[in-house]
């Protein structure tokens, strides 16, 4: 069995990504461009938060004591959150939301394809369930990439703008944190270097079909994985943790 602390910390990487993206997707509920898609995006939010819950429950069991999925999710401050910068980026508009989702879905898909072979049974089980959900997310976001990229002049412009705006947050997905590196060495997490070309290829294919381009400017931001987040993250947590913080120890 894997080292408890290492598995705990690695699990947080996975959980925080899905939690924060789920939180962002949830912001759309009631404000989507059309009812059917409002419902579709909420389904994705529910999948992501559902996955995060499984992972937080695993983390809580590793932590032991009085830890629960909620104490792990709600009682850490910004520096202890390990999600990538990409998922905390604001919804902005439907274009940013779709592009952010697509970039993450491709990563999420290949990540869980690998985790399905993890030597850590509990991660493997979560991945086996998650992969079905993510396969659908990826289909959904890929189709929207193509539909809007190759839609009207206006939609192409908005999509290209979103690709340009979010591109600098994609590199971090593949920059291993110390924890990810150790988890890989311990044999229960995939090598992010293997995922990168897979991600790149899929993204290029879909962007090509969407008539969109990878921006030339290629500086890549990083920091989320080590807790150095964007300013957005504080506001996400302020919303998310408000009740837990205002009424410490209360049951809800």
């Amino acid at each position: 069995m894997a080292d408890k602390d290492l598995l705990y910390n690695y699990t947080l990487h996975l959980a925080d990504n899905s939690m924060i993206l789920g939180q962002r997707c949830g912001e759309w509920c009631g404000h989507g461009p059309v009812l059917e898609q409002d419902i579709a995006l909420t389904n994705i939010a529910l999948d992501l938060i559902g996955e995060a819950r499984s992972l937080y429950q695993l983390a809580a069991s590793l932590k032991g004591g009085t830890a629960t999925e909620d104490t792990v999710a709600f009682l850490r401050d910004v520096l202890a959150y390990r999600n990538v910068l990409l998922v905390e980026q604001p919804n902005t508009d439907w274009a940013y939301t779709i592009v952010r989702q697509f970039f993450y879905d491709v990563f999420h898909f290949y990540l869980h394809s690998e985790l399905m072979n993890s030597s850590e049974e509990r991660l493997k089980n979560i991945a086996t369930k998650t992969i079905k959900e993510v396969t659908y997310h990826l289909k959904w976001s890929s189709e929207w990439m193509i539909r809007l990229g190759d839609g009207t002049d206006l939609s192409r412009e908005k999509m290209q703008d979103a690709v340009n705006g979010l591109w600098e947050f994609t590199g971090e997905l593949f920059m291993s944190s110390a924890i990810e590196q150790k988890a890989f060495e311990a044999g229960f997490a995939p090598d992010l270097n293997i995922l990168k070309p897979l991600w790149q290829e899929k993204v290029e294919d879909v962007l090509a079909e969407s008539t969109l381009f990878i921006p030339e400017k290629n500086y890549q931001q990083k920091g989320g994985k080590t807790g150095v987040h964007s300013e957005h993250m504080g506001f996400i947590l302020a919303d998310m943790q408000f009740l837990q913080r205002a009424y410490p120890g209360a049951n809800w």
Binding site: P33, V34, W94, R147, G151, S155, K158
Partner: peptide
């Protein structure tokens, strides 16, 4: 805010 999305989907179809 959703108008461009709905239009683009029709245009693509």
């Amino acid at each position: 805010n959703g108008a461009w999305v709905r239009e683009a989907a029709v245009a693509y179809a």
